[in-house]
């Protein structure tokens, strides 16, 4: 019995599970990725593009699945799960590189003068104690003058001259100066210094004057290198953000609107009846007010009289 025909038709129906290529496919099972480095076969590409792409995709998928089935598995409720190895392919970074920090004033000066940065140790050798001590901080060397038990006083010093206090004040002033310079550096980096503010002011004034002509700046003579004035671009919330934030913002807005209307509304409430209650109370109590009226109806006459005296305000 000749089964070669059946076998041939069977083989045509089911393609081989092994993928043979000139350059073997690179499979990165960790990120479920296959890279085909073979050059494109121009003949089949031109003949039938769709078929060519499908066969390429089929080979890639076949190679990926073949590699997945060699991986160790772990049983789970949904059937065995393959345990992926860590990915080997280096994905490009999603975010751009962080921008370098703007140089401080000192760094600019140092680079101009060619001064090299020297890293000082935090510890310093103390000859007297014969040990390493902190340069600053706890038991720092910079506090030595304040801590020593005897201090030299300069000639012709005041009676109340306190060498400890002088040394401490000098140290504190140095710290304050450093802090101030740091703040100035930060402000310069953020573009918030007095210089930048002045620059912004001038630009604003210039933009205003340019549109302050009869034609609102449309038919004015343009100068060379004059930049186009750009307005403020409107910015909206993203459409696809989670809806909960939007809901909360709306509810907050409604409650704010309600409280605003309560604050501003001074006219009588619309739910009030035809009866003018204030006027009716004044009439019934003969001008003495609601409290006196209530007391009169509840208690005896004597109390009512007492109330009358106090009721006159």
């Amino acid at each position: 019995m000749d089964v070669s025909g059946i076998l041939a038709s069977h083989a045509a129906k089911y393609k081989s599970v092994t993928v043979e290529k000139e350059t073997p496919l690179e499979v990165d099972a960790g990120s479920l990725m296959v890279t085909d480095l073979n050059p494109i076969d121009e003949e089949s590409y031109n003949a039938n593009l769709e078929e060519h792409l499908q066969s390429l995709a089929r080979d890639g998928a076949q190679a990926l699945f073949a590699s997945l089935f060699t991986l160790p598995t772990r049983p789970s409720a949904d059937g065995p799960l393959a345990q992926l190895p860590p990915p080997t392919y280096q994905l490009p970074r999603a975010k751009p590189l962080p921008k370098p920090k703007p140089p401080t004033k000192w760094e600019v000066f140092a680079s101009a003068k060619g001064i090299q940065k020297k890293v000082r140790d935090k510890k310093e050798w103390d000859e007297e104690k014969q040990e390493w001590v902190n340069r600053w901080g706890r038991d720092g060397k910079n506090k030595q003058l304040e801590d020593q038990w005897i201090t030299e006083v300069p000639l012709h010093a005041d009676v109340d001259f306190d060498p400890r206090k002088v040394a401490r004040d000098e140290r504190k002033a140095r710290v304050a100066k450093n802090e101030k310079q740091r703040d100035q550096n930060l402000a310069r980096a953020a573009g918030k210094g007095p210089r930048e503010e002045r620059k912004r002011d001038i630009e604003k004034t210039l933009a205003t004057t340019r549109i302050s002509t009869a034609s609102m700046g449309k038919f004015d003579k343009k100068l060379d290198g004059e930049k186009k004035v750009r307005g403020v671009k409107r910015k909206f919330d993203p459409t696809e953000a989670p809806i909960d934030h939007e809901k909360e913002a709306s509810l907050a807005l409604i409650s704010r609107m309600e409280s605003d209307s309560k604050k501003t509304r001074r006219e009588p409430q619309p739910e009030e009846s035809v009866l003018n209650v204030r006027k009716a109370v004044r009439f019934a109590s003969k001008g003495r007010g609601g409290i006196a009226l209530g007391r009169e109806s509840a208690g005896g006459r004597g109390r009512g009289r007492g109330g009358r005296g106090r009721g006159k305000r």
């Binding site: 909206f236 919330d237 459409t239 939007e246 913002a249 807005l253 409604i254 609107m257």
Partner: peptide, 18 residues
């Protein structure tokens, strides 16, 4: 299509609240 800004929401809500 975009969400309403706060001013726009305020106008819409005042009208609806009426």
């Amino acid at each position: 299509m975009r969400p309403l800004t706060e001013e726009e929401s305020k106008v819409v809500f005042t009208k609806l609240a009426n």
